[in-house]
Computed example of a mutant assay.
Amino acid sequence: MSEGARPMQEPTLLLLTALADEPRHGYALMQEVAEISNGRVRLRTGTLYGALERLQREGMVRVEREEVVDGRARKVYALADQGASALAEETARIRAVALEAERRLALRPRLKGVTA
Rank of each mutant, 00 (worst) to 15 (best):
E10K: 13
P11Y: 04
T12W: 06
L13C: 11
L14T: 11
L14D: 06
L14M: 06
L14Q: 05
T17H: 04
A18C: 05
A18W: 00
L19R: 00
P23M: 02
R24Q: 13
H25G: 13
G26R: 00
A34D: 11
I36E: 01
S37E: 11
S37I: 07
N38M: 11
L43K: 02
R44F: 07
T45K: 12
G46K: 06
Y49I: 08
E53P: 03
E53H: 14
L55Q: 03
Q56R: 13
R57N: 10
R57D: 08
E58A: 11
V61M: 00
V61E: 00
V63K: 00
E64H: 09
E64N: 05
E67T: 15
G71F: 06
R72P: 01
A73W: 09
K75G: 03
V76R: 01
V76L: 02
A78W: 01
L79G: 00
D81R: 07
D81W: 03
Q82N: 12
Q82E: 14
Q82R: 14
G83T: 04
G83E: 01
G83I: 00
G83N: 03
S85D: 14
L87T: 05
L87F: 01
E89P: 03
E90M: 10
A92R: 15
A92L: 14
R93A: 15
A96Y: 04
A96D: 11
A96C: 03
V97A: 10
A98C: 08
